[in-house]
Amino acid sequence: MEKSENAVRSRLLEAGKEEFRDRGFLKTSLRAICKKADVTTGALYFFFESKAALFEEIVEETAEDLKRIMGDFTDQEKQLHPEEYDRILMEFIWENRDIAKILIDGAEGTRYVNFREDACTKMEQILNERFQKECGQEVDHELVHILVQMKFQGYCELLRGNCSREKFLEISRILQICSNQCLLAIEAELNRKQ
């Protein structure tokens, strides 16, 4: 019986992941998840208290890992070149792309609704620290916000696309190069004005 319960739970998690990825939390129905998993609604409630509990079970570990990776950037930066750090991050996102899509586009109505904004805020903090380190001054907050939004939007579009792992990583590498060249130009302009 235990083996059968594990199989049902696994089917529910996989069906939930697909539905949340394709429709988002608010537009996903428990009925659709159960139909896809070929189980009754009662079976779903045997394993999960609610749709929110199922959602959290699906995204929680990846969300925490992403927060940790982004939070560790400053420490990693001392050991890794930014391109290497970005490659590691993008490989993690590729391996967890369905859940990353859910967190970026499908978390409205959950406690993860601010995941995207929180990630951008962290990226803005990292960028401000870089400018402070390289130029000895802060940069206009609006400029930093726009730069981060541009980079993040590029990665979101890449994530939403349907490309191979190799193409995904190659395009993310090129986006990182573009971002770095932009930052170097801004740093040069700031240093010129001093």
Rank of each mutant, 00 (worst) to 15 (best):
R21I: 00
C178K: 02
E83S: 10
F55C: 07
A32I: 01
V144C: 07
G16E: 08
Y85K: 00
E142M: 05
Q176A: 08
G109L: 02
R111P: 08
N6W: 04
E18Q: 13
E61L: 02
L147S: 09
L184Q: 15
A7R: 14
L66K: 04
N180L: 07
C156F: 00
P82A: 06
K67A: 10
E142K: 09
L12Y: 03
D105H: 11
T110E: 01
Q149V: 06
G24R: 08
N128W: 05
A188N: 12
F55V: 12
Q176W: 01
S10V: 03
D75L: 14
R11A: 15
K101W: 05
C135R: 03
L80K: 06
D140G: 09
I104A: 14
A185H: 06
Q79C: 10
E157S: 10
E91P: 04
L169K: 01
S50N: 06
T40L: 12
Q79V: 13
T28P: 07
I126H: 10
A43R: 11
A63R: 00
V8H: 06
A107K: 01
R116L: 08
K27R: 15
L158K: 04
V148D: 04
A32T: 09
E2N: 13
E64M: 03
F20H: 05
R165D: 04
S179P: 01
L184R: 02
L158A: 14
C156S: 08
F48N: 11
A15Y: 05
L159M: 09
E138G: 12
E95D: 14
I174L: 11
I99F: 06
Y155R: 09
I93P: 00
F73D: 01
N191F: 03
K3S: 05
F115D: 11
A15L: 06
T121E: 12
K17W: 00
Q79F: 14
E129S: 09
K78V: 12
E91H: 06
I69Y: 03
H141V: 07
C163M: 09
R97L: 10
A53I: 05
L103T: 10
I146G: 02
M150F: 09
G154F: 01
E117S: 12
A52T: 05
R9L: 13
A107C: 11
E170V: 05
E14W: 00
S29C: 01
R130W: 09
N180A: 12
R23M: 08
A15E: 06
K35P: 00
V139F: 06
L184Y: 00
L147P: 02
E108Q: 09
E57G: 00
E56A: 08
L147M: 11
V144P: 01
K27E: 14
A32D: 15
S179N: 12
A63D: 05
I174H: 05
